[in-house]
Structures are given as C-alpha cells and as structure tokens.
Design a protein around this nucleic acid. Sequence first.
DNA 1: TTGCATTGTCACCGATCGGTGACATAGAAT
DNA 2: ATTCTATGTCACCGATCGGTGACAATGCAA
Lengths: 218, 218
Amino acid sequence: MATKAKTRAGTRNPSRPRDRAATRARILRATGELLAAQGFAALGVNAIARRARVDKVLIYRYFGGMEALLAAYAEEGEFWWSVDDLLGVDLPPPERDGAAAWLALALRRHVGWLRTHPLTMEILSWEMVEPNRVTERLAEVRERRSMALIGRLLGRFPAPAELDVAALSALLGAASNYLAIRARATRLFNGLDLGRRGDWDRLFDMVERIGAALLDPT
Amino acid sequence: MATKAKTRAGTRNPSRPRDRAATRARILRATGELLAAQGFAALGVNAIARRARVDKVLIYRYFGGMEALLAAYAEEGEFWWSVDDLLGVDLPPPERDGAAAWLALALRRHVGWLRTHPLTMEILSWEMVEPNRVTERLAEVRERRSMALIGRLLGRFPAPAELDVAALSALLGAASNYLAIRARATRLFNGLDLGRRGDWDRLFDMVERIGAALLDPT
DNA sequence: TTGCATTGTCACCGATCGGTGACATAGAAT
DNA sequence: ATTCTATGTCACCGATCGGTGACAATGCAA
C-alpha cells in the first residue's frame, strides 16, 4: 500500500554476509538469551527471530520448527555443573572434615551454582510446568552428574550399608532446587527469609546436622 | 456483512435471567476450572469468558481486569489443607508412636493432599514462575497453617531446645512440594521413580529416620 | 407511563502468535 | 557469461490476545 517495499526482497539491507552456520548460531544464541531474560513463557519463533535479527522463516528452514530448535539448543549447551564444580581439588575443603561437612558443602555449592546460572534455574522451573526436549536433556545430564557426585562422596566416606542414600540425596536435592528457584520470586518460606544469607546458613547447618546423624560413625 | 446480527444486541439468546451475582460467580468458577484444567499459562480474559459463557467485558466491569479478578478469586477459595486434614483426630495414627512417626505421617498426608488437589499444585508451580495475587494469598495461608501444624506437633512432642525446627520443616516441606509438583510431569528424580508407590515410601522412611535421629529422645 | 441505571451483547481495534508462499540476491559450479 | 541453488527478505494468512465503545434489553423508581 504505502511507499515501502521498493527493493522488494533479497538482501535488502547492506547487512551481513550470508552464512548459514553463523545464522544458525545467532538463532541458538538468541534462544538462550531470551530464555534467560524473559523466561520460557516468552519463548517463541517470533520472539527468537526478532532477538536474533533474523527472519523467522529461517528457524523453520534450519531447524524445522520450535520443537526441533529446542532439541538443537539442548544439544549444544552446558546446563549443569560438573562434579569438579562442586568438589574440585582447587576449591577449599570444609572447615571440619567428615561426610556431613562435605555433604553440606556440596549442597551449598549446588545452590550457589544455581544462583549464578539463572538460565539453568529457568529450565528447572520450566521442567515443572511443561517438560520438553531441553528439560529432558538437562534431566539426563543432571541424573548422571548427581550419581557421579554421590559416588565420589561415597568413595571418600562410605555410608552405612543400610542407609538409603538415593532417598536422602533426593530429599536434599529436591529441597535445594525448590528453594533456589522459589527464592527468585518469593523470599519467604516456612518462616525463613531466603533473601538473607543467614537463613540459608540455617538450612545448610541443618543439612550438616542430618548428615552427621545418618552418615558419620557413631 | 453476512446474514447475522439481526437483533443486534441485548439479551439476544433466550439465555438465562440477568443476575450480576450469578454472573460474577460463573466467572470465578470458570477461573478455577480453567486453571485446574489448562494451567496458568492458558489463563486470560478471553479464555475465562469463553469458559464461563459470558462476555469478557463483564470481567472488566465486575472485577476491573485480570489482576483484580485473580485477587477476588484468591479471596473466595480454599487452597490449602487445615491442620486437621493432616492430623485430625478421626484419622488413623501412625503404627509406631513418636515424633518421627508423626512427622513422616504428616508429610505423607501433605503430599497426598497435594496430589488430590491439582489446583493447588498448579498454583504452587505458578508461584515459582510468576507470583501474583493468588499465589501471594496462598502463601500467607500456607505459612499460617504450617506454623499451626508445627505448633501442634511440638505440643505433643517437645523438640530439643537447640534444634532449628523451622529449618528442618522448611527443608522437608520444600522437598515435598518440589517432588509432588515435579511428579506430575516427570517421574524420575535422582534415581527414584516418583510414579511408583514404593519409591515414595523410601522417601518417607527417610523422613522418619531423620526425625528419629533429631527429634526422638536418645 | 416515563425515565434511567443496570445487565448483557456485539463489533471492532491494534498487537502478537505460529506458519507459509513468493520472491530477490549472492556465490559457486558450469 | 550463464545457470542453479542456498540464503535471506517480505507480505500475508487465520487465530488469538487484551481492551473498548456502542447499543439493546431489562427491571426498578419516579
């Protein structure tokens, strides 16, 4: 209608050189940025294309659609800690030694890692609402890494044979995830103020106490 | 354009009698139904009006908008258990007596209550993503009821003075919520299968064990 | 009976959504 | 130089979104 669309199509802008690989990468990067900045509710072809400054049709051409884009995104990213991020030899050990102290320290670092990786927290909360290729993939990696972490701790501090280690770590891991995710938006939970350092300390002290009661030799 | 809109407006349908209060109630009921059925992502004026078979403009007229509708909805609903739902005198007591057994039983019933109240679980997950009037209101109620629950248990089984009861219950409550919400969509967590009764039992056994170690007289 | 506020219906607005078909251009192969 | 394909641009589709203005019917007050 109006005075527009003279050149009609093609590379109308002086624009960047054509480069499929680079464009693909732009799209993937924009996906992560958008997810971190706006959350999964805002994720969609239009929003991603806009952010990547790319035409949305290329998302369909290069990935095949939203679902497939998420799958590709899941493949190329690193969304979870490695065991060394939590227990690495260059990290300071706990003040007291022993299984309980190491357990509490690992959980502390787990929560700290989450708080510095909002993208991962976003995916974790996504997983609770509508699982998808990205969250599935993250869940797999997480399962493996968690097992490795537990294995490492058990190697150093053998647990009582009758102790259900999986149940214990599931309990503590679930609590950590919940509180970390929830703390982004709401500070109070069960009388604790998750915005305060000290209240987190109380939680980790409790973890250590539980560990001491169940793990350390009497 | 077409052959429609002869009568133009008003009560075109034979329709129901005009009744502001009833219409308000329809809207509120539809809000809850939609939330339970589709989740908070699907919640909006259009969807609610459609479900309530009511014109959406009435939502603006009677409530003032989405935000205010949520506030009103939060006021008229009951979204959390009462202490008696978990510890009522007509419910069977645990097989063994003692603080740990009661603690585990309470958490068991807490999770059971959640699983039979999908609307509450929906709100709980909502709260982790985008807090609003409904989730705030639920959080208040929950805080009060949790305190009452803990108070009742402590009244029966006084805890060691130096035990941080708030931290302990926060840990266990957080874990319960996380696992209950998550289990709707994903069964596996940390090697446990939340679709299986037995694996939940392992978790509650662990709770009882923790309780025994920290609460029961040595 | 007349007037009037309440209740409800409808059409429409601009924005955004996921998705597609048509076309222009660049760059390599021939 | 010519052809061809991969790459990117654009316009448009129907559906849905939140939101509003205009109007018809109801029923009560005067």
